[in-house]
Computed example of a mutant assay.
Amino acid sequence: MKHIEGTLAFTQTQMTTDAVQALEAAEEEIAGLLTLIREIPGINLQLLEESQAAWEEFSERDATLFASFAEGGSLHPMRTAEWRLALAEERAEKGLVGSPILTGLSGVMNLPSLLTSIAQRIPRNSFAISLDCPSHAFQAAFRILPS
């Protein structure tokens, strides 16, 4: 098996750097989703901001707990970033794009049009949105493929 130089982290420093960079990318994705969601008519902006602030506090505290076994060691920053990354990915997928934010709007606006509008504004890379709203008997899925 041939190793391609620079593709794998071999030091703790590089593993931590990679974890932090992945976390930063996920946080940028959340910021972009929040920007889109703020523009949706009918969104209670105060509740959205309170929810995001509470989630951010939870994310930091939960990651601190998760990484506490490595406190003071070289693994601590990496484990903290990895756990926050997992939480951020879940927040983006389920908490912002998923039903808690958008299902309540289905009676207020045309949900398929809303999702199409959001999907068109997401950068052209592989991205999927799926929404399951059993109470409204509505399901939608979008996939934007690289151009």
Rank of each mutant, 00 (worst) to 15 (best):
S117P: 15
G104R: 02
H136T: 12
L102H: 03
E57K: 10
E24A: 13
F142Q: 00
E89H: 15
E5Y: 15
L33Y: 06
E24V: 06
P112T: 01
S130I: 10
Q46N: 14
I4K: 08
A81K: 06
Q46I: 08
S59C: 05
T16V: 03
E50H: 08
Q46Y: 07
N110A: 09
G98Y: 04
P100E: 07
E28P: 00
A70H: 03
T80F: 12
L34Q: 01
K2T: 12
A86T: 05
A81Y: 03
T116K: 06
E93W: 08
N44A: 05
N125R: 08
K2I: 14
G98F: 01
G73P: 02
E27L: 12
L114K: 00
S59M: 04
S147H: 08
S59L: 02
F142G: 00
A119S: 14
A119P: 04
V108C: 11
R84A: 05
A141H: 08
L87D: 02
T13E: 10
I129T: 05
E50G: 09
S74W: 09
I30W: 01
I122P: 00
G107P: 09
M1Q: 12
K94A: 13
P134F: 05
R79V: 15
E27D: 02
L47H: 06
L8E: 13
K2D: 14
V97Q: 05
L75Q: 12
E50D: 11
I43H: 05
I4L: 09
H76I: 09
A53M: 04
R91K: 06
L65R: 10
A81H: 10
R121E: 07
L75D: 13
E27A: 06
G98P: 00
A9T: 11
D132N: 14
L8K: 13
E29Y: 05
L111F: 00
S135L: 15
E89V: 15
E28R: 09
L115W: 04
L47K: 11
S74Y: 09
H76G: 09
M78F: 05
E5N: 05
